[in-house]
């Protein structure tokens, strides 16, 4: 139980996937312009990461390892993730067409969100148990969500400020992300696995 809480804490704050490990930067830049889409994207990523980590863990330990075909890890994991994203996309198109429109191209692009594959691979590499992998997935994706929402708040405010023309949009977002990353480095060493 203690280890689960540690995992949760570490991968939300200390080792944040976006701000400390720099995974998933493209959706972080792409959909952080408005808070609504950031919330929706965050929720979609939490769902995809959690479920795909669960499924890939099961596949790795019950299919790949017994058959001795671990070298297919990358291919199978990507396949699982792509399937998950399809599921989310179909669901969102029916359930919330506005959000579907807002997310646009970034929704199918969750497939290529490196954070998703990274969580699945790291869960196996760090030899987490099934429960730990799922908590790891939840923590990493909540960390992603948090970074996305913080950034969307900042960007909504930046809309009103006179950022020099060459830096508007992506450039100032990256600069802001780097300062945010500096601030989050202060959490380093707070807990270790």
């Amino acid at each position: 139980m203690e280890k689960l809480i540690t995992i949760l804490f570490i991968y939300i704050l200390v080792d944040n996937f976006v701000l400390q490990r720099f995974f998933g930067i493209c959706p972080f830049l792409g959909v952080s312009r408005k808070m609504e889409t950031a919330m929706g994207m965050g929720m979609a990523v939490v769902f995809v990461i959690t479920i795909s980590t669960l499924v890939t863990w099961l596949i790795h330990y019950y299919v790949l390892v017994p058959l001795g075909i671990e070298f297919l890890q990358l291919v199978t994991f990507i396949l699982v993730i792509a399937g998950m994203v399809q599921l989310v996309e179909t669901f969102l198109r029916k359930a919330s067409p506005t959000l579907y429109q807002g997310l646009g191209i970034y929704l199918p692009l969750i497939t290529t969100n490196c954070a998703v594959l990274a969580v699945a691979l790291l869960a196996v590499r760090q030899e987490f148990t099934l429960l730990e992998s799922v908590v790891f997935g939840i923590a990493a994706s909540l960390g992603f969500w948090m970074a996305l929402v913080i950034m969307s708040g900042i960007r909504e405010r930046l809309e009103l400020s006179k950022v020099p023309a060459p830096l508007q949009g992506t450039a100032i977002t990256l600069i802001t992300a780097s300062i945010l990353s500096l601030a989050f480095m202060g959490f380093r060493g707070m807990m270790t696995l």
């Binding site: 929402v149 913080i150 708040g153 909504e156 300062i179 945010l180 500096l182 601030a183 480095m185 202060g186």
Partner: peptide, 13 residues
């Protein structure tokens, strides 16, 4: 330093 910078980032929210 880190505390105030982090809260600065949360200010819009």
């Amino acid at each position: 330093t880190f505390a105030i910078l982090t809260m600065n980032a949360l200010t819009p929210l």
